[in-house]
Amino acid sequence: MTIRTTSTARTLPTTGPQEAALPATDTLLDAIGYSRGRFIVESAGTPPLVIPAWSEVQRVVEDCRG
């Protein structure tokens, strides 16, 4: 699975069919939260998902960090 944001792109190992895990401190979560407009999730065998980078994403990340 590959996550693309305005500032970065990273391939993540999957833990299930379409599932990946990140620790709450991972900088990719910040990149998703601060991405301009949208971020993209790509996975083999499925069309890419283009997801709006709403402020709620960053709020959830901050809540998980405690």
Rank of each mutant, 00 (worst) to 15 (best):
V50H: 11
R4A: 11
I3T: 02
L22E: 01
G33L: 08
P13N: 11
L28V: 06
I40Y: 02
T27D: 14
E56V: 05
G45Q: 06
A53P: 02
C64H: 13
D26F: 05
L28Y: 06
T2C: 10
Y34C: 05
C64T: 09
L12E: 03
A53C: 06
A31H: 15
S43F: 04
S55I: 06
S55W: 04
T25Y: 09
D26C: 10
R4W: 02
T11W: 09
T2G: 05
L22C: 02
F39R: 00
I3G: 00
S7M: 12
G37C: 03
I40P: 00
T5D: 01
L49V: 03
T11Y: 08
A9C: 13
S43C: 10
T8M: 14
A9G: 14
W54P: 01
T27H: 15
S7N: 14
V61R: 15
Q58T: 05
G33K: 12
A21R: 15
R36D: 08
T14E: 15
G66F: 06
T46D: 07
W54G: 11
R59G: 07
G33M: 09
A53L: 02
G45T: 04
R59M: 04
Q18E: 12
A31R: 09
L29T: 05
G37K: 05
T5F: 00
D26Q: 08
D26E: 08
P17M: 08
T14A: 15
W54V: 10
A20P: 04
L22G: 01
I3Y: 02
T15D: 07
R4G: 02
T6N: 08
D30V: 08
S43T: 07
P17K: 13
I40K: 05
T25P: 03
V50T: 09
P23N: 11
L12Q: 07
A21E: 15
F39C: 00
P17W: 08
G16H: 01
V61C: 11
L12P: 01
T11N: 13
P13D: 12
I3K: 01
S35Y: 02
T46S: 12
P52M: 01
G66S: 12
F39N: 00
T15Y: 10
V41P: 00
Q58V: 01
L49C: 07
P52N: 00
T27Q: 13
G45I: 07
V50F: 06
Y34M: 07
L49E: 05
E56I: 04
Y34W: 10
E62S: 13
L28S: 04
V50N: 11
P52G: 00
L12D: 01
T14D: 13
S35I: 02
D26R: 10
A9W: 07
T5S: 03
A44R: 13
P23T: 11
E62A: 12
P48L: 03
G45E: 05
